[in-house]
Design a protein around this nucleic acid. Structure first.
Lengths: 338, 338
DNA sequence: CTGAAAGCGCTTACAG
DNA sequence: CTGAAAGCGCTTACAG
């Protein structure tokens, strides 16, 4: 019962024109007379013809497909990014081939190779790093890549992040101004530029301000790891009175543990996160955090990628977008602000 | 600087065989001698050849791409479903073309048409309904569709849901057994089978048990709508002592409002959700809810879809998977269970 | 502006 | 088992 596929041949026959004429009518920028256009449109309508994008892709080398590699979908930040990225790209007429990747280097490289086979016009990696080998292969294949929410040392790739060093610094300033004396940090994964940058800004600013940093550990962007780190901190003979947590997702786990111990937020211990995901604003957490301006980051990502697709010679861009500190109730405020 | 693409011609030349021989080596099931296979593999390795899936798709009509349409990414249930679905499909060698859809009928139909153009081998819609017109077109085009977490009256499409009617019933039984006297329901969107089924099971069971249903409203699967509905309920001269909320995502909003009003969960008012997303188990909410068995639902979805791709004449299946009530602390327990 | 023709990179009968 | 050839559904020089 499968309907036969309608091809440009069928349309040509019905419209009484050549197959190339049909193709031209559907190719933006190609020339065709009004009469031809009218005949072809009418015939297409009647038959329900739509050009086969696969055939088109094979010739032009442009698939209008963007590969999107994403991980950490349990952190609310990424589904939201995926949604916005997807909408923005769809609006520009692109389709999105999605890969969910565990964050192992082998897995990611295999995935990107697959993507390249499909002749994607560009690749966005969200929360994921690429090996420099692969980076070069993409460049060699002429496939632009932009990393979302992650940077990479060399100059090979475009990336869009928030101003993470600066963000870490803001948190240090807030905590010191709030009079905290024993400050700890449960960092984002050390394997990510994002985690390292936030930590660096935080630690440097703390040193500048003579704040006392009592402990640092790697939370791996993981709830359980962060929870365990928190329990360890609270077990100490002299527990911290503030913890800067590398992202909101971990900060929620930290808060759950804190409450479990009967401690009061802001009063006994202050918690600050990073991202400002929607959940951070919900009543149950009310998390003080640094906002990552998601919409602006997404726009920058899409703009950069499309610009590079349009002009393959365009140099990779490293874009950093500043985000504000959002004051809520999980951290004690400085006297003059409260 | 763009590298030229390696084709089967290049490999054939280097290996000293015909282009068809190269193709056969890469086509599972095609016959080739050991010697040929060895020569072709060696040459491919050396050149870094990988067959072009687009060209292959054009001939075979099988793209090994599955279209995935998803909405409501702010509800934690769906990103998780997306992740699992994506992983399961990737493991089977499929690629996933993702569309995020607002839940408007026009938008979804357009999206599915796009998907069909790309000759996807199958379509999964998550949390989204399809018009019967489109359903027929997919059938006519021979593209199997399975709806995830949503059913559809007619017999046209496969669907995988949890046992929603039964789930609603379980909640009614819990609430009545817990001695609640004024029970309200903030339902899932009436436009969704899922929302309607849960409500039906709940209302019917309540009637059977002589429970008093004081109010029903449509929460639209939306936080703000649910929050407003809750405020309205609490404003009444005689507010409810229990609310069954159509999914966890809305239940979190309901709980935020309840606490805002200084009410104690389970003591003053009981809240029950639906889904059992991870957040439901976190300390901040501890939500009593009906679990949707995500992994089993995903497995059933993938199995059904692949079976239908393999055998296009296979009849559509409507699969319902039972999920348990998860008792936490947001709802008062019956005496004998507490 | 328009048609005939070549070709994108493959798979698949068809002979041998 | 293997090669020559046709063809999937398009785009794009090339003439006219």
């Amino acid at each position: 019962m499968t309907e036969p596929k309608i091809t440009s041949q069928d349309v040509a026959r019905l419209a009484g024109v050549s197959q190339s004429a049909v193709s031209r009518v559907f190719t933006p920028g190609a020339s065709a007379s009004k009469a031809t256009i009218a005949k072809v449109r009418a015939a297409s309508e009647q038959l329900g013809y739509r050009p086969n994008p696969l055939a088109r892709a094979m010739i032009t080398g442009k698939s209008r497909i963007i590969g999107l590699v994403v991980a950490y979908l349990d952190n609310q930040f990424y589904p939201l990014a995926l949604e916005r990225l997807s909408n923005a790209l769809q609006a520009k007429g692109y389709h999105i081939l999605v890969f969910t990747a565990a964050n192992s280097q082998d897995g990611i490289d295999a995935v990107i190779r697959d993507l390249m086979d499909y002749q994607v016009d560009g690749i966005i990696t969200a929360s994921v790093a690429m090996s420099s080998d692969l980076t070069q292969r993409c460049a060699a294949a002429g496939i632009p890549v932009v990393m979302f929410n992650r940077g990479q040392p060399g100059a090979g790739l475009s990336s869009v992040t928030s101003a993470n060093v600066e963000g870490g610094r803001k948190v240090a300033e807030l905590l010191v101004a709030g009079g905290h004396k024993r400050i700890a940090h449960i960092a984002g994964w050390h394997g990510s530029s994002t985690g390292r940058d936030r930590q660096r800004g935080f630690v440097e600013a703390l040193a500048d301000l003579d704040g006392e940093l009592v402990a640092i550990s790697d939370g791996m962007y993981d709830r359980d790891t962060a929870a365990k780190a928190t329990r360890d901190l609270l077990k100490a003979q002299n527990p911290p009175d503030a913890i800067f947590v590398g992202n909101d997702h971990m900060a929620f786990a930290v808060i759950d543990v804190i409450r479990d111990h009967g401690l009061r937020l802001a009063t006994d211990i202050s918690i600050v996160g990073y991202d400002d995901v929607p959940l951070a604003a919900w009543g149950a957490y009310n998390l003080t955090t640094v906002r990552q301006p998601l919409n602006r980051m997404v726009d920058a990502t899409v703009d950069t990628l499309l610009a590079q697709i349009k002009d393959p010679k365009r140099a990779p861009q490293k874009i950093e977008i500043d985000g504000p500190l959002i004051l809520r109730t999980s951290a004690r405020l400085p006297k003059d602000k409260s």
